[in-house]
Amino acid sequence: MDATYPFIDQWRAASEARDATEAAAALAEDVRLISPITEQFRFQGRKQVQDLLEVALDALESIKFTDQVADGDTVALFYEATVDRTRIFEAQRLRLDATGRISEITLYIRPLPALTKLMSRLGPELARRNGQPGLARVIPIASGMLHAMADGGERNFMPRAAPR
């Protein structure tokens, strides 16, 4: 594989444009996505990942990729965005197949309140899309409590632990 990454360029441009269909076109058919939220399941195949992308790109605003590091068939991307006015930073480890398409995505998100805010936006819609309307009603309650704890800790307790 040469040093150019046309599918990575496509992925970045489509993500910044919030175009899930175009982003999914950069994926291998058998892509898998490893969530930053849970180890309980993975998104498998282009269709599942595109469904997630549609929901995530709807929730995220002002996506701007800032850095790219590549080593052979592994590329790390970093971006900044907002979710409901909360700043979010994401790192993506992308593994490429022999054609250069993205075959594996591992996501890392910080800070914790941004992750919990994103979870509260994605969870209900993903549950609805999976035919689970009851779960879609419960997720905002559970994720809302988790977000309140994470956000409260970030704002009220962590500043007190800052180096002096």
Score class of each variant (00 low, 15 high):
D73N: 13
L27D: 12
F65T: 03
Q48E: 14
L115H: 07
L52D: 12
I88P: 03
I34Y: 08
Q132M: 13
A28W: 10
Q40R: 05
Q68S: 08
M145R: 07
A136T: 05
R128L: 14
I63V: 15
E39A: 07
M145Q: 09
R129Q: 13
T21L: 07
A28P: 04
Q68N: 00
R46V: 07
Q40V: 00
V69P: 00
Q50C: 05
R32P: 00
V138W: 12
I141S: 00
L96T: 08
R32M: 03
L122F: 07
F89R: 14
V31S: 02
A136L: 02
D30L: 02
L135P: 00
I109T: 13
F41Q: 01
P133E: 10
T116L: 11
I105F: 04
M149D: 09
L146T: 14
A114H: 08
S62M: 03
P124K: 03
E54T: 10
F89Q: 13
R95F: 01
V138A: 14
A150K: 11
T116G: 01
L33W: 12
Q48V: 02
D71E: 13
M119N: 09
L57P: 01
K64H: 14
F89T: 11
E125Y: 05
A114T: 09
E104D: 09
G100P: 04
S35H: 00
V75D: 08
A114V: 04
E39R: 04
E104W: 06
R42Q: 11
L57R: 08
T21R: 14
I102N: 06
A98C: 00
K64A: 14
R46A: 08
D73S: 09
L135N: 03
R18W: 04
T21Q: 14
V55M: 06
T116E: 11
A76V: 15
G134T: 10
L33A: 12
H147M: 03
A56W: 10
I141A: 09
T74C: 00
Q68D: 01
P140K: 05
L122C: 10
K47I: 13
E22M: 07
P36W: 10
G72K: 06
G45V: 06
A59F: 09
T116W: 06
I102P: 03
K64Q: 15
Q48T: 00
Q68F: 00
V31F: 06
I37S: 06
A76H: 11
F65C: 05
L94P: 05
V138Q: 13
L107G: 04
S15W: 14
I109V: 15
R128M: 09
V49D: 08
M119S: 12
L126R: 02
R85K: 15
S62C: 00
V31A: 04
P113I: 10
L53D: 12
L96C: 03
Q50R: 15
A98P: 00
A91D: 15
L53H: 10
